[in-house]
Computed example of a mutant assay.
Amino acid sequence: MTPQLSVLDQSPVGEGFTHADALRSSVDLAQAAEEWGFVRYWVAEHHGSPGFASTAPEIMAAVLLTRTTRLTVGTGGVLLPLYPPAKVAEVFGVLASLYPGRVDLGLGRAGGPAEDYPDRVRVLRRMLRADEPGLAGAPAVPPRMWLLGGGLTSARLAGELRTGFAFAHFLNPGAAATALSIFRREPGGAGKPVEQGESGGDVDSRSVLAVRVVAAPTEAEAEALAQSVLLWRSRKDLGRDLPLPTPDTARNHRWTTLEAERAAVRGGSLIWGSPEQVHGRLVRIAAEHGVGEIMVNTLTCDPADRFRSYRLLAEQTAAPTPPLSEVPSEASSEAPPEAAASTYLPP
């Protein structure tokens, strides 16, 4: 089964580009993604980062809703510890009233003290429900609420509260299966499966995997872009938050030992290659995790490379899908972390 594809957009800022360039590129990409058949488009929230321009996802979501007609638009996600739940409810109540059925409210627990995060989520959920006294003028069709997580805590809470659950595979791929299992074991986490997966298990319509992907016409081009992402990520892990480097910068960079070690760790969570290779990997990952939707996160220095990556993947997804038995397995198609340095780093 070919999973549906969505977009997680962090509005990446590359060398030689400005934050304004990144934001305008996100608007253009959302419009293109709708035409290419992506079903959902989420904008992230980051603060104080030279590499990401997405500081106000609620504003970006409002703009994208005005520039598209069918696409479901949302946040991936609002950092709830930073805001009073009532304010978030009011903002997304307005969006959902203006664009009923097209608004997702994705919530993250980062950004501040998270001890009361579950209570904040409960309050916000109650305020947005039209059948309960909470928000004056609650929308008739409330936004669909999703909890985001890279571990197990939000998975358990999402299952308990019957929200959707989006797991950040690109941050912690090894915990994805466990987190989704916890989510589905909770009373509200089972959801209604949309269909039977090819592996024989149910495909869960209430969970998605967010996967970091780089596709290019050839494997060599994709590897050059992947090397750029890994240099950026390794620097960020070591406290140097910079714009995304160009492939030439990454190619000519003299990697330190610590950078190489971080790239080796991060290499296993980055899926890159030709459109056929990437599509096959996504089909396999979706089947193994029982999800019917993959949220694709692509970072490149040049917005044109990012557009091309999403377009190639959409075109490949529209093509006939081979039987799952012909798709390379995760073990055979993904370099293990210890091999990532030799794959991505110069001698």
Rank of each mutant, 00 (worst) to 15 (best):
P143H: 03
A130S: 09
G137W: 13
D131P: 03
G159E: 00
F165G: 06
L148D: 09
S154W: 11
P133F: 12
A136Y: 15
G137L: 05
A140K: 14
G149S: 10
P143E: 05
L135R: 06
A138T: 08
R162D: 14
G164S: 03
L135S: 08
L157T: 06
A140F: 14
L157K: 09
S154T: 15
R162V: 14
L135Q: 12
G150P: 10
A158K: 03
G151C: 14
L152D: 15
W146H: 06
A166D: 03
W146V: 02
L161R: 01
V141R: 07
S154G: 15
A136E: 15
G164R: 00
A130D: 12
G137F: 10
G137Y: 11
S154D: 14
L157P: 05
A140E: 12
T163V: 08
F165M: 11
T163A: 06
G149I: 11
S154K: 09
L152W: 15
L135H: 07
A155P: 03
G159V: 00
R162W: 15
V141L: 09
P133E: 09
G159K: 00
G150T: 08
R162T: 15
E160C: 11
P139K: 05
A155E: 04
L152V: 14
G164T: 01
E160A: 11
A158F: 06
E132L: 13
T153E: 09
W146E: 02
A140R: 14
L157M: 11
L157R: 07
A130N: 10
E160F: 11
W146F: 02
T153Y: 08
R144N: 13
L157H: 10
M145H: 00
L157E: 04
L161P: 02
L147C: 05
A158S: 06
G149W: 03
G149L: 13
L147E: 02
G159H: 00
